[in-house]
Simulated assay, not measured.
Amino acid sequence: MKNIYFAGAFIFIFFTGCSSTYTVTDFGTKEKFYEEFNNNFKDREAKVTLVDDSSFIAQNGVEINHDTLLSFKKLEEKIHRRFALSDVTDIYFPGSTTTSASVALKNGNKLTGDEVKVTKDSISFVESKSIVVIKTLVPTDIIKTISYNDRWRRMPLGVLTGAPLGFLSGIALVNVFRIKDYHGGLDYPGVSFQMTVLGVLTGCITSYLIGFDYIYQFNP
């Protein structure tokens, strides 16, 4: 019975809509289409499918600029710094640790670093900087679709689907197996409650695994 319930919940959620597809005609102009696309694909993992049906994943977000798809890769650069104490106006150690510090210089710059070492006449530390590398991928005229998956979008549907299915499954289990409570009566409330909770969990897990695809179509 439980296996049948799980299969029913999965099939119901799967066939109640798993994606939305957008084209240029939905936005009126190509510029507005690109603007909407760029706003939605920042910092998202994107699946790019080309017109020859080959595909690849861009993990750190994509953007369209001048009819060309660009991707972004975030890197962390570590820079070793050393200053004479005579060039420093203030050293601030947050918390109780002395391994990290904020250093104010006489020229007005403020730097934050780790692995701080202070001697009688100098201070040295490692400054970390995040940099973004932009890579040119492909022109838009060979792109078929670009999509991303929102795993939380369908969660309310999972709850609304799982709860009633679980409740009805509980009633069916009691009728089939004659499950009784401590007083000897049929335990409809207890079993139905347990199956409702199980149904909600199953619906949420199924919805999360399937997710909801947002598909932007460039070429048929």
Rank of each mutant, 00 (worst) to 15 (best):
I4H: 10
F6D: 03
A7R: 09
A7Y: 05
G8N: 06
G8R: 07
F10L: 14
I13A: 02
F14W: 04
G17D: 03
G17M: 00
S20E: 14
V24R: 11
T25S: 15
T25A: 15
D26Y: 09
F27S: 06
E31G: 06
E31P: 06
K32C: 04
F33R: 12
N38A: 12
N38Y: 03
N38T: 10
F41H: 15
E45G: 05
E45Y: 07
K47A: 07
L50E: 05
V51E: 13
D52S: 02
D53P: 06
S54Q: 09
S55P: 00
F56H: 06
F56M: 07
I57A: 04
I57D: 04
A58R: 05
G61Q: 08
E63W: 01
H66S: 13
L69T: 04
L70G: 08
L70T: 04
L70W: 15
E77P: 01
H80C: 10
R82H: 09
A84L: 11
S86Y: 06
D90K: 15
I91R: 11
F93W: 02
F93T: 09
P94I: 08
G95W: 02
T97V: 14
T98L: 13
T99N: 14
S100R: 15
S102T: 14
A104K: 09
K106R: 14
N107S: 08
G108I: 04
G108Q: 01
L111V: 05
E115L: 07
V116G: 07
K117L: 12
V118S: 07
S122V: 12
S122E: 13
I123S: 12
S124V: 03
V126D: 12
S128Q: 15
S128V: 12
I131A: 08
V132P: 03
V132G: 05
V132W: 00
V133L: 12
I134Y: 09
I134W: 08
K135S: 13
T136P: 11
V138T: 10
V138S: 09
V138L: 04
P139W: 00
P139R: 10
D141R: 05
I142C: 08
K144S: 15
T145F: 00
S147Y: 03
D150L: 08
D150F: 03
P156N: 03
P156D: 04
V159F: 05
L160M: 14
T161E: 11
T161Y: 03
T161K: 03
G162V: 10
G166V: 02
L168Q: 03
L168A: 11
I171Q: 07
I171V: 13
A172D: 03
A172I: 12
V174Y: 03
V174L: 00
N175Y: 12
V176L: 10
F177R: 09
R178I: 11
I179D: 07
D181P: 01
Y182K: 14
H183E: 14
G184F: 00
G185P: 11
Y188L: 04
Y188N: 06
Y188M: 07
P189R: 01
P189S: 02
G190R: 01
V191F: 00
F193Q: 10
F193G: 13
Q194H: 03
M195Q: 15
M195G: 06
V197M: 08
V197I: 10
L201I: 15
I205A: 12
I205N: 01
I205Y: 01
T206H: 01
Y208K: 11
I210E: 07
G211Y: 01
G211R: 02
I215M: 05
Q217S: 14
Q217E: 15
N219L: 01
